[in-house]
Design a protein around this nucleic acid. Sequence first.
RNA 1: GGUAUCGUGGCCGAGUGGCUAGGCUCAGCUCUGCAAAAGCUGCUACAGCGGUUCGAAUCCGCUCGAUACCUCCA
Length: 493
Amino acid sequence: MKHQDLHIYNSLTKSKEKFTPIHEGAIGMYVCGPTVYSNVHLGNCRTFLSFDLVFRYLKHLGYKVRYVRNITDAGHLENDGESGDDPILKKARLEQLEPMEVVQKYTVDFHTVMAKFNALPPSIEPTATGHIYEQIAIIEKIIAEGFAYQKNGSVYFDVMKFNETNNYGILSGRNLEDMISNTRELAAQTDKKNPQDFALWKKAEPQHIMRWPSPWSEGFPGWHLECTAMSTKYLGNNFDIHGGGMDLKFPHHECEIAQAEACNHTSPVNYWMHTNMLTLNGKKMSKSTGNFILPNDMFTGENDVLSKPFSPTVIKFFMYQAHYGSILDFSSEALEASEKGYNRLMDAHRVLDEAPTSAKSSIDIESWRNSCYEAMNDDFNSPILIAHLFESVKFVNALNEGKETISKKDLEIFKKTMDDFLFDVLGLQDNASEGSQDSEKLSAAIELLIQLRNQARADKDFAMSDKIRDELAAKGIQLKDGKDGTTFSLSSL
RNA sequence: GGUAUCGUGGCCGAGUGGCUAGGCUCAGCUCUGCAAAAGCUGCUACAGCGGUUCGAAUCCGCUCGAUACCUCCA
């Protein structure tokens, strides 16, 4: 399944470009992972689910993909009680936790949540604290290249110097002169030559818990350095795709480019991809403002925002109905609409197996299939893909009503394409078809009630038949009278 | 203030010069003991103003509005 006409919107050039990997058939992709000092919220998840789609589709096309996504587990914790803004930090202090206990707790939470969303784990998931040595080596190289200076045990990147020979701001469309003239309040960062300079190494204050020895001081690495260290270590000095949330574009990714160019004299990344924000009430979901919702609270329904619980796969389907590059606003109404559409799609997929075949096809399955690929090849346009998948619902119904015909061979292609896109590429799950022993017993019991009700209907004992139907409905079991008999579905109420 | 993105029908959300996006809602119909479910059909919008063009939601300009970044956040 090698399709060569994939196009990706490159944030660096602000245009859609034909994707050509550095090494034919193999792709290196780096995505900035979470800072594990609190639970991942749904906005964080959107980014990782967007890149899960990218990862899955690239693999589906037959590429060998090395997907590296880091865990940021260093440098943020302080023990001084001055900042007081981070409730997790407060909690860690309150419960006398080691910083690494906090890290462990939220790393586990992150993995658990992503597994519920059926996201594939990355190929490599390196941690910042596991790569202190590599980070120090990069700082030494940047100093040797003349793009960094040390002051009082800390090391800073010299943005002005870098800008003389390179272009600082190339990614985010900023230019240094403007930034300097628009500098805000002069903070008490007296160690820096310029406010635009950023720390590569920071000397630890006495109260700072996480600290490592270095040639300059006992301290900790700068915020932006870990990604440069780990991406180049596992993917090389120049690799294919670097992704992350839009909010990391500046300064984080800008600084990554500067560090890598200062160090390796080459642009580190060919295609920059930025996913847009998930908003709640029109505002970005954000840990610091408290405007967010936690995935688990959505699954259970225990929240003030939504009318009912939603399954992880429905939430994912909802997200994929918008393009990753667009802001997506989150609401109960929009989710309910997606859930209904999702159920209709899955219902159609389930009856696809029983579709009657004919000698000839009246529908053009091949061109439908191609349009699915065209959608994904156009910058991973999942909303268009899903629109095409909904066409399959009409196909299936028309086949079952005898209005259209399909050959055995085409039906196989049809089924394969649906399975490929629904489950391999989108990574959805069919909630209803997860049969356990309990649900089989439940089915048997309900089948019996259906028989009793149909007998009552045949006897025109509608009081009895309606009682069975209504009382089951009250328990969240809905009976559906179709042409070929009665089926049922479980709703979450 | 600077940088960037965006403003699409009742709602969500694609589309970047001419061709019905799609989903949900709603209405009508089919089916049904009734209802639900399911299916079919229908509902033609692009913030405002000007410009370019045979033709603009789509390109250009201006106005208004929204969001993000410029400080840790996906």
